[in-house]
């Protein structure tokens, strides 16, 4: 493609010199890199260090150094204050939302790709409009609807709108993916006579698995971190989810920063574990097709 590539030896010389002499821009770049490393990672380190400090240690210790006598006492306090219950609520809301969003989306994506008619095209366009609409713009009527349905302050009340707003992007990504399945595959598998459900199960689902995993991760993170729905749609202790729990801890232990930081660390636990054990998947999922 590029004719200059024929000049192989010259290329190698160039490469070697680059490795030996650090040029000014490489130094500058690395400096910027180190600076950003401190800015982006240090606050996280601060969360961790503070969560291991005793309340006394927090006030007298040097705040930018690790605690002299690390303690897990704050984690114990947080767990005794009902955190396990809030954690479980978050798991229920997030997992149910993901299953519903991804399940509904993959079925619809299949129909949208395989059906050529105006109604389906119109429905797809409706979902695309949904991409541009901010959740905040619909929250007032959602609050009224959920209240009228008797679902205020319940986990289901949070799940229903989360599913609705998770659908458009998930659907778009899956449509793009299912569209890439060559139509010859449908024919060559002799599935022409098969029902849509059979085609779905034996062809689309297995092929779309990587995309399904990636959108599931994306939707899970969105649901896990969602704040507006629980803020507006719940109020009691029994339906409290993780982000609300942090806010209530902050209010309850105003001056006890270590306890709140322990709550913050615990709230991110699933994502921290996912990052340690499956960084590639998690980051791929967070990009959700934008990085294509």
């Amino acid at each position: 493609m590029i004719p200059m590539l024929a000049n192989e030896p010259a290329l190698q010389v160039v490469k070697r010199t680059r490795r030996q002499v650090p040029t000014w821009y490489n130094v500058l770049f690395t400096l910027l890199g180190v600076l950003w490393l401190i800015i982006s990672f240090y606050p996280v380190l601060y969360m961790l260090m503070t969560s291991l400090r005793s309340q006394n240690g927090y006030l007298v210790g040097i705040p930018w150094l690790p605690p002299l006598h690390p303690t897990f006492g704050n984690y114990a306090t947080v767990i005794q204050a009902g955190f396990a219950h809030y954690f479980l609520n978050s798991v229920i809301v997030s997992v149910t939302s993901v299953v519903l969003i991804v399940g509904c989306s993959v079925l619809s994506a299949y129909v949208i790709v395989r059906t050529k008619n105006k109604v389906v095209r119109f429905i797809f366009n409706l979902f695309l409009v949904g991409l541009a609409l901010p959740i905040q713009a619909a929250i007032i009527p959602i609050y009224i609807i959920i209240t009228k349905m008797g679902l205020y302050d319940t986990l289901i009340g949070m799940i229903l709108p989360s599913v609705a707003f998770g659908l458009p992007l998930t659907l778009l990504i899956l449509v793009n993916f299912v569209r890439d399945i060559p139509s010859e595959l449908y024919e060559s598998m002799g599935l022409d006579g098969a029902s849509d459900f059979q085609v779905m199960r034996s062809l689309v689902l297995p092929l779309a698995m990587p995309a399904l995993i990636s959108v599931s991760i994306y939707d899970f993170v969105q649901a896990w971190n969602n704040f507006l729905f629980p803020l507006v749609l719940t109020q009691s202790d029994s339906s409290r989810v993780m982000p609300m729990a942090i806010v209530s801890f902050q209010g309850q232990y105003t001056m006890n920063v270590p306890v709140t930081m322990a709550a913050v660390m615990l709230s991110a636990l699933p994502l921290i574990l996912a990052y340690i054990f499956g960084r590639r998947y998690l980051l791929g999922g967070l990009l959700a097709g934008f990085g294509k």
Binding site: L100, S105, L107, I123, V129, P141, I144, L160, A164
Partner: peptide
Amino acid sequence: MIAPALLFFLVFALVPMLV
């Protein structure tokens, strides 16, 4: 197959927006 997604989206996203 398309009904569940449409239902969720209409009831909890699009209709609220119009309301």
